[in-house]
Simulated assay, not measured.
Amino acid sequence: MDRDPLGDARALVADRYPQAVWAVLAGSVLTAHRTAGSDLDIVVALPLGDALAPRRESLVFREWPVELFVHDGQTLDAWLGKERLERKPTLFRMVGCGTAIVGDPAGRQAECRAVLEAGPEPLGPAQLERVRYGLTDLLDDLVHATDPGERQVIAAALWKDAAHCALVAADRWDGTGKWLLRELRAHDPDLAGRWLAAQPDPAAIEAFARNILDRLGGPLFDGYQAVAPRPEATKPA
């Protein structure tokens, strides 16, 4: 735990990507959340058109587990755009809140922090209906499940889905794994506590999910439609 993550991360980038325009070290290794298993999350920006971008690498360097996220300006823009649509700002957070170890990413970091602070775009009507329908369907499955094993599996799926939907209802960024809980806590610590407490009890999960569904506008099944674009016709040979 007394190793220098900044120095080691800087040495790794210099060794593997000496052409880097800038790089940042992010993640729990620089925070109070650091543990003995914390890794080095490093975002590397290469010159535009570099053949090594985009890529993700996992490796061990000086006993550190390392995750490298390698982009050039074009691929970074594309990936950030994808994250905004998915409402899961992993790369935004790494770049915006990371510590520079190579070059000067200040401009890009300011852009990412501004997006994080603004929050995601509200869902459109069709997207919101899809969320309501999905949560309604899981609740219905749980209520009518008779097989104990199936009920347990459905409850687990509903528990996690209800947390994602709670963030949708609040127009907050979403997350996966530990970031799902962190986003919930940042939004509403009491809600996050009730979500965690419900986990072992299918009845409590059902009650929590119904509360979230009400925040989204209530159950949706009868009359729901999801229209998809027609696939392009295959030209005859």
Score class of each variant (00 low, 15 high):
G107F: 08
Q74M: 12
L52T: 08
M1N: 06
D174A: 11
A163Q: 02
G223D: 05
L135W: 08
R87D: 02
L59Y: 03
D161V: 07
P47I: 08
A100T: 10
P200N: 09
P89F: 01
G96E: 04
I205A: 12
R62I: 02
A192C: 08
V29T: 13
Q74E: 15
A156V: 08
F69V: 08
P65W: 00
A198Y: 05
G217K: 04
T176L: 12
L213G: 08
R132M: 11
G7C: 03
S28I: 07
L123E: 11
A233K: 14
L135E: 07
K88A: 14
A186E: 06
P236Q: 08
A32K: 09
D8G: 02
L139I: 13
R62M: 01
S28P: 07
E121N: 03
L191V: 01
L48N: 09
L52M: 11
G175Y: 03
E83S: 06
D2I: 13
F208A: 12
R113Q: 13
R182M: 11
L181K: 08
A197Y: 03
P54L: 07
A32W: 08
H144C: 10
P189I: 04
L213H: 08
L139K: 06
A157N: 15
D174G: 08
G223S: 06
D104P: 10
A45S: 13
A162P: 10
P229N: 04
W22A: 15
V13N: 00
G103R: 07
G98I: 10
L138V: 04
A126F: 06
L91Q: 07
G149R: 11
W22E: 13
E63W: 04
T90L: 14
L46T: 02
A228H: 11
A126G: 04
P189G: 05
E150R: 14
A170R: 14
R56H: 14
R93S: 15
R10T: 10
A53I: 01
V95I: 15
P120K: 07
L191E: 10
A186N: 05
E183T: 04
P47C: 08
L142C: 10
S38L: 09
D50L: 01
W159Y: 13
A156C: 07
G124D: 14
L76T: 02
D4P: 05
A118I: 04
L135I: 06
L48Q: 14
D171H: 11
R194L: 12
K178F: 02
A197R: 14
W173Y: 05
A186R: 14
V29P: 01
R185F: 06
A237P: 13
L80P: 04
V29W: 00
S58M: 11
K178M: 05
L46Y: 04
L40H: 03
P47G: 09
T90G: 12
H71G: 02
D214K: 12
